[in-house]
Computed example of a mutant assay.
Amino acid sequence: MIFKVYYQEPGNEVPIRERTKTMFVEAEAERYVREKLKDRNINIELVQRIQGAHLEYEQQNVDYKVLEI
Rank of each mutant, 00 (worst) to 15 (best):
M1F: 08
I2D: 11
I2H: 03
I2S: 04
I2A: 10
F3H: 01
F3W: 01
V5T: 01
Y6T: 07
Y6M: 11
Y7A: 00
Q8W: 05
E9R: 15
P10T: 09
P10Y: 06
P10A: 09
G11Y: 08
G11W: 07
G11V: 02
G11N: 04
G11E: 01
N12V: 09
E13R: 06
E13F: 04
E13Q: 04
V14H: 09
V14Q: 08
P15E: 02
P15Q: 03
P15L: 00
P15H: 02
I16W: 05
I16A: 07
R17Y: 14
R17D: 15
E18I: 08
R19L: 08
R19G: 03
T20R: 14
K21H: 06
K21E: 13
K21Q: 11
T22D: 11
T22H: 09
M23K: 07
M23Q: 05
M23S: 03
F24T: 08
F24N: 05
V25Y: 00
V25D: 01
E26T: 00
E26N: 07
E26P: 02
E26I: 00
E26C: 03
E26M: 04
A27D: 01
E28D: 12
E28S: 12
E28F: 03
A29M: 08
A29F: 08
E30G: 02
E30N: 02
E30H: 02
R31G: 02
R31A: 05
Y32M: 03
Y32C: 04
V33W: 01
V33Q: 00
V33Y: 01
V33N: 00
R34C: 00
R34T: 00
E35H: 03
E35I: 02
E35L: 03
K36N: 05
L37W: 04
L37A: 03
L37M: 04
K38T: 04
K38M: 09
D39G: 12
D39S: 10
D39T: 13
D39Y: 11
D39E: 13
R40E: 10
R40W: 11
R40H: 12
R40F: 14
I42Q: 03
I42G: 02
I42V: 06
N43S: 15
I44R: 05
I44N: 02
E45C: 03
E45I: 13
L46R: 15
L46V: 13
Q48F: 12
R49Q: 14
R49V: 10
I50T: 12
I50N: 07
G52E: 08
G52I: 12
G52N: 11
A53S: 13
A53R: 14
A53D: 14
H54L: 13
H54E: 15
H54W: 09
H54Y: 14
L55H: 10
L55I: 11
L55E: 15
E56I: 05
Y57V: 05
Y57T: 13
Y57K: 10
Y57P: 00
E58N: 07
E58C: 14
E58V: 11
Q59H: 11
Q60N: 13
Q60M: 14
N61P: 04
N61M: 13
N61T: 07
N61G: 08
V62I: 14
V62G: 13
V62T: 13
D63T: 09
Y64S: 06
Y64C: 04
Y64E: 10
Y64F: 15
Y64H: 05
K65D: 13
K65T: 15
K65H: 15
K65L: 12
V66T: 08
V66S: 07
V66I: 08
L67G: 05
E68F: 05
E68N: 11
I69N: 02
I69W: 02
I69K: 03
